[in-house]
Design a protein around this nucleic acid. Structure first.
Lengths: 316, 316
DNA sequence: TTGTAGGCGTTATCAG
DNA sequence: CTGATAACGCCTACAA
């Protein structure tokens, strides 16, 4: 943990010469360079990135902000993004927050550090505000639909289409009584998927049945009184929970009931690879995020979620 | 995103005076202070923490390193730790890694930035090496048992005891044929819980049956051929998976089979609050981690995991 | 009460 | 080829 100045003194040269050696720059004799590099590795020299970043007025750190309870799905997404950012020489540092206030504070913190950018999963139910100077000074990206903030880049698939395509997929497989199951929240992503479901059902002149996560009995009652044959769940976790609830009452999936989720994230599939789902285009999202950091406006929209056949939906 | 020097110029004073105003230090007239503070807020001035940190040779950032697939449980733990670190004026920045090499590189990166410390979830199956100078220059903590690295602080409950207590809990509830279900891995945490299970079973002269996560049929075969009445799972996710597998074959939990997990992390219980489990002492772990950062060696060990009654285990 | 100087570790530029 | 100097933004110490 030696500094470049100390390294220079150890080699009886100036800091400038050390710099030339370390960065393979011209204007230094091979002999001097080798000597310096040898001493550098001997002492395990590593440049302090903070000093470099302060010089250049720009950090290579990208802040990732996520609400603690949202972390399951988004950590996978963050990991995919992180990989691609590393390839660009950037580093993703993820912080979790409790309240919108904490979130805003962390945004300010990263901005003050002259971060390369920010990737947010904003709080649901309660919007945050980001000051105009911050939005101007670094790219700020939201991974979910966040209307009302000028200059915020939103990177996510068309969630209305996700709901629509999912529902159409079930209809094409012969289902007519389809239940939509999601969470009690005003999160845009949730509302929009439900909207897509309703559009698809209406287009096929079918009756919509909508409910939020609930106890086993409520689920059963809703299913029975509507002759439901398929449940479209907001995400895979909810689908798994529904499957568990159904199974606990002797209803087999997919024999007696089809269940469809959304996400297909690696962590979930590593825990359970049985749920038929709409694959969330994480790679494409990462690409778009990187494009924004490269200041190259993406030429096309985000790919839609796509149907993945597993074992929890059957055709009837 | 104005600097303190620019702020000084705007107020027609020196940087020193600005500093006195911002830090409520003595030696400044109330009038000047107010004027400076007004201009500061007008321009949304925020000190660049990097500059401060470089001055002091110490950053307030604590690095959190976790393997991408481990993230589900550890993100909750990181969040708890993060809360307490914030109370100490520190910030936890979590990075995910793929390979041990990436992990080591990130360790070097945080060390070069003069981080306040590092909290690792090291790779399983393959140990990493951390250079002695790094271990000397900042506190490095592992959240799982990581033998063989001198100077590394390991902060986790006694996992042998976890396995032991879990098994004894099942035995006390009348179970005799108990299956241990975990993952195919040499991770110390996994091995130690299995060890505790075996110790408890031997102590009660019971026959041990051990299997790793597998397909439904294999699970069923193992259960039938050993007259199993309870399954002790390495964690709640695995417990949920087992419950799903059992339910899908008409075996009801806990009526026909008891299932016990470990973790009781908020994210899991928010998705499913039915699994009887061994509560992982996240708060106590966070306390010990903070004690290390305060350089106050913790006076006692980590609290053990404790039984939490839910709905997946019954007495027979 | 206020201004000035120096240093943290790096890099870019200019002079030798 | 190499050394000296300034700059990034902040803070402490000392001088006026």
């Amino acid at each position: 943990m030696i500094s470049s100045l100390e390294l220079a003194r150890l080699c009886h040269v100036s800091q400038g010469t050390v710099d030339r050696a370390l960065h393979n720059r011209a204007g230094i004799s091979a002999r001097t360079r080798e000597r310096i590099l040898r001493v550098a590795t001997e002492h395990g020299y590593q440049a302090n990135p903070m000093a470099t970043e302060m010089m250049q007025g720009k950090s290579i750190i990208v802040g990732g902000l996520v609400h603690n309870l949202n972390s399951v799905f988004f950590m996978d997404l963050f990991h995919t993004i992180s990989q691609q950012l590393i390839a660009m020489g950037l580093r993703l540092h993820v912080c979790s927050y409790d309240t919108p206030q904490t979130c805003e504070q962390l945004v300010g913190d990263f901005a003050a550090r002259k971060s390369a950018g920010l990737i947010l999963v904003p709080p649901i139910d309660q919007p945050i505000s980001i000051s105009a100077p911050i939005l101007k000074s670094l790219p700020v990206i939201s991974l979910i639909h966040s209307p009302g903030i000028e200059g915020l880049h939103c990177v996510h698939p068309d969630e209305v289409q996700t709901g629509f395509d999912a529902t159409v997929g079930l209809i094409e497989r012969g289902h007519r009584q389809i239940l939509m199951l999601d969470y009690p929240s005003y999160s845009p992503a949730i509302l929009q998927r439900a909207q897509g479901y309703e559009q698809a059902m209406r287009k096929h002149c079918l009756h919509t049945v909508h409910m939020v996560k609930s106890d086993t009995q409520t689920l059963l009652d809703t299913i029975k009184s509507n002759n439901i044959t398929a449940v479209f769940c907001h995400n895979d976790w909810l689908a798994l929970e529904a499957i568990r609830q159904l199974n606990s009452q002797g209803i087999k999936v997919p024999d007696d009931m089809s269940v469809l989720g959304v996400d297909d994230s690696p962590t979930f599939t590593s825990l359970c690879d049985q749920v038929t789902t709409m694959h969330y285009p994480a790679d494409d999202i990462a690409k778009h995020v990187c494009a924004i950091f490269k200041d190259k406006p993406p030429k096309r929209g985000i790919k839609p979620c796509t149907w993945v056949n597993r074992q929890s939906v059957r055709s009837i």
